[in-house]
Amino acid sequence: MSDINLQPIEKPQGVRDRVTRALRAAIISGEMAPGEIYSAPSLGARLGVSPTPVREAMLDLAKEGLVERLLNRGFRVTEVDDHYLDEITELRQLIEPPVVRDVVQLIPAEDIPGLRAAAEKIVQRAVEHDLYGYTETDKDFHLALLRYAGNGRIVKLIEELRAQTRLVGLASLAERGELAGSAAQHIAIVDAIEARDSDLVYRLMVDHISQTRSTWAGNPSGQ
C-alpha cells in the first residue's frame, strides 16, 4: 500500500462519519490512488480505529461510486477519465458562478468576517500541507456561499459533484509550495463579495473552478 497521510480518528462519538469524511478526502485529494486496493484492517490501523467503521465507511463510499468492493480482497478506488471530470466541471461552471454572483448583494455585512475567516482557514490548511483539512474547508466555504441562495437542491448537487472528483495533482501542488497561492483565491472572492462586485465574483469563481479542473488532471499549471 502506498503511503497515505491519514490522521488518527478521535473516538468514540461519530466514528463512522469521521472515518467516511477522512477516506473521502483522501480519495478526492489523490492520496488514495485510483485502481489501488485497500483493506479495512490496514486503513483502520492508520486511522487508529477498528476495521468495522472503516468497512462501513467504505460501503458508504461505494454507494457514492468512489470505491468498489472486491470480495475477500478489500476495496479499490474507482478511476475516472478526463471526459467524466470535464462533465463535472461544466456542471459546476453552469451552477456555481451565477448562483454566487446573484447572492452577493444578499450576504449580510456581518457575515463577511466569518467568510473571510473560512477563506483564511483554507490557506492555513494549504500551508500546513493538510490535504484532508484543505478539501474539507474548501468544500465548506463553497457550500456556505451557495446556501445564501436558499436552494437546498443546489447545495446538495454541488456537494455530490465535488465528492465525485479526484484532485490527483493536489499533493504535488502542496509539495511544491504552490497550494497556498491557489487557496488564496478564496480570499480574493471574499474581497470581491465585501466590495459588492458581483461581476468580479462571477469571474473569480469561473477562473477558480477552471484552475481546479487542471488540478484534477494532475496539472496545476494548466499547461
Results as ranks from 00 to 15, higher is better:
residue 1 M to Y: 06
residue 2 S to Y: 11
residue 2 S to H: 13
residue 5 N to P: 04
residue 8 P to Y: 06
residue 10 E to C: 14
residue 11 K to I: 03
residue 13 Q to A: 14
residue 13 Q to N: 09
residue 14 G to M: 07
residue 16 R to K: 12
residue 16 R to F: 01
residue 16 R to E: 13
residue 19 V to G: 01
residue 19 V to E: 03
residue 22 A to V: 10
residue 23 L to N: 04
residue 23 L to Y: 04
residue 23 L to K: 02
residue 24 R to F: 07
residue 25 A to N: 10
residue 26 A to G: 06
residue 26 A to I: 11
residue 26 A to R: 01
residue 28 I to E: 05
residue 29 S to I: 02
residue 30 G to L: 08
residue 31 E to K: 14
residue 31 E to Q: 08
residue 32 M to K: 05
residue 35 G to F: 04
residue 35 G to R: 08
residue 36 E to C: 00
residue 39 S to V: 01
residue 39 S to Y: 03
residue 40 A to S: 09
residue 42 S to W: 00
residue 43 L to C: 14
residue 44 G to Q: 01
residue 44 G to R: 01
residue 47 L to V: 02
residue 48 G to P: 08
residue 49 V to C: 04
residue 49 V to F: 01
residue 50 S to M: 06
residue 51 P to G: 01
residue 52 T to Q: 15
residue 57 A to Y: 05
residue 57 A to I: 06
residue 58 M to D: 07
residue 59 L to T: 13
residue 59 L to Y: 06
residue 59 L to M: 15
residue 59 L to S: 07
residue 59 L to P: 02
residue 60 D to G: 02
residue 60 D to W: 06
residue 61 L to P: 04
residue 63 K to H: 14
residue 64 E to Y: 02
residue 65 G to C: 13
residue 67 V to R: 13
residue 68 E to S: 08
residue 73 R to D: 05
residue 74 G to V: 07
residue 75 F to Q: 12
residue 80 V to Q: 06
residue 80 V to K: 13
residue 85 L to N: 06
residue 85 L to P: 00
residue 86 D to K: 02
residue 86 D to G: 12
residue 86 D to S: 11
residue 87 E to G: 06
residue 88 I to L: 14
residue 92 R to C: 05
residue 99 V to E: 05
residue 100 V to L: 02
residue 101 R to W: 01
residue 104 V to E: 02
residue 104 V to H: 03
residue 106 L to V: 10
residue 107 I to D: 03
residue 110 E to C: 15
residue 111 D to E: 11
residue 113 P to W: 05
residue 113 P to Y: 05
residue 117 A to C: 01
residue 120 E to D: 13
residue 122 I to K: 02
residue 122 I to M: 04
residue 122 I to R: 00
residue 123 V to E: 07
residue 123 V to A: 03
residue 127 V to T: 09
residue 127 V to I: 10
residue 130 D to N: 10
residue 130 D to T: 09
residue 132 Y to W: 09
residue 132 Y to G: 05
residue 135 T to L: 15
residue 135 T to F: 12
residue 136 E to R: 13
residue 137 T to N: 09
residue 138 D to C: 00
residue 140 D to A: 14
residue 141 F to L: 08
residue 141 F to H: 06
residue 141 F to D: 06
residue 147 R to H: 05
residue 160 E to Y: 03
residue 160 E to A: 15
residue 162 R to D: 14
residue 163 A to D: 12
residue 166 R to L: 11
residue 166 R to A: 11
residue 167 L to N: 14
residue 170 L to G: 07
residue 172 S to W: 07
residue 174 A to E: 07
residue 175 E to D: 11
residue 175 E to Q: 08
residue 175 E to H: 13
residue 176 R to L: 07
residue 177 G to R: 12
residue 181 G to Q: 15
residue 181 G to M: 13
residue 184 A to V: 11
residue 184 A to K: 11
residue 187 I to V: 12
residue 187 I to F: 01
residue 187 I to D: 00
residue 189 I to V: 14
residue 189 I to K: 07
residue 190 V to S: 09
residue 194 E to A: 09
residue 197 D to K: 10
residue 198 S to D: 08
residue 199 D to H: 12
residue 201 V to S: 13
residue 201 V to L: 05
residue 202 Y to H: 13
residue 204 L to D: 11
residue 205 M to W: 00
residue 207 D to W: 11
residue 208 H to L: 04
residue 210 S to C: 03
residue 211 Q to W: 15
residue 214 S to P: 05
residue 214 S to Y: 07
residue 217 A to F: 15
